[in-house]
């Protein structure tokens, strides 16, 4: 599978009914396993994501679809985004649209089941008017919108870190890694916009940031966006830390504790934690 040929097709409409050639993605998956998976955007609550290639691609597709929906709705909301920043969010929307199209095409080309496009509700009410509003004013108040956008971009960086490695097709994996870095630029930019409006926040997750306050029922988003980012110990082999933090006597010696140690590394997020956050918006 040539990456460039996928990219060439990104802007095109989805393929017609003609069956696409089988791709490496499907070869790694096993047809039966894919066919057995249920339709629908969210994985069933009882089944924790198993981090197969199919699960990785569909979860990243849901993430990108969520961001496409948020930026689409935000750009359509009169008076929400200042004129000076309209171009920024148009670029963010264009990028996320490309990313969603890539994963959609990958699934279609593999002959895999494509999850239906969910109906998104960024109030956190799940489309039910009587449900509590978990994310108030995100489409009417610019600061509330930016805070939500930042958390979704932070989640995005971490989920690509987690799921890219689970993608079995090497071309698609490399494409995912290149998206990963773009999501980090998105996050840094939105953090910069918030900083410019007086929020105490840096361009990278830091313990010096002021926490974004959410109701308990929306905590899954904060957990998925930045929970665990304070980690200052890095492993290569599980359970065996690189003798680095102790070498520098940073993490254990509060006298010279330096938040930069945790800032210098972004942390992956578990697919289950990410799914819990994504489920808040469908």
């Amino acid at each position: 599978m040539k990456l460039i040929s996928i990219l060439d097709h990104l802007a095109a409409a989805p393929a017609t009914a003609a069956p696409a050639p089988r791709r490496a993605l499907l070869a790694q998956l096993g047809r039966a396993a894919v066919a057995a998976l249920p339709l629908g955007a969210a994985l069933p609550a009882a089944a924790a994501p198993a981090d197969t290639s199919y699960d990785a691609v569909t979860q990243l597709l849901q993430l990108e679809r969520t961001q496409v929906a948020l930026y689409t709705q935000a750009l359509a909301a009169t008076g929400l985004i200042p004129a000076a920043q309209t171009a920024d969010f148009q670029r963010l929307l264009a990028h996320q649209t490309q990313h969603a199209a890539l994963f959609l095409k990958a699934l279609q080309d593999a002959g895999a089941i494509v999850p239906a496009l969910p109906r998104f509700d960024f109030s956190g009410k799940h489309g039910v008017a009587t449900n509590p509003e978990l994310f108030p004013n995100v489409l009417t108040n610019y600061d509330a919108f930016l805070a939500l956008a930042q958390q979704l971009e932070d989640l995005s960086v971490r989920l690509y870190q987690t799921q890219s490695i689970n993608i079995s097709d090497s071309q698609l994996l490399r494409a995912a890694l290149r998206i990963h870095a773009v999501e980090a630029q998105h996050s840094a930019h939105i953090r910069g916009l918030r900083k410019g409006r007086g929020a105490v926040v840096q361009n990278w997750p830091s313990e010096e940031d002021t926490a974004i306050v959410r109701p308990a029922a929306a905590q899954a988003l904060t957990t998925a966006a930045t929970g665990g980012e304070e980690n200052g110990v890095q492993y290569v082999t599980p359970g065996v830390p690189i003798p680095f933090a102790s070498l520098l006597l940073i993490s254990t010696n509060t006298a010279i504790h330096d938040p930069a140690l945790a800032e210098a590394f972004d942390e992956p997020v578990s697919s289950a934690a990410a799914q819990a956050a994504l489920n808040l918006f469908v």
Partner: peptide, 19 residues
């Protein structure tokens, strides 16, 4: 294994780049 740790660094570099 090293791909994972490189991933944890590259996104910070990308944040720097955007800044």
């Amino acid at each position: 294994v090293y791909l994972g740790i490189a991933g944890q660094i590259v996104s910070v570099e990308a944040r720097h780049a955007a800044y």
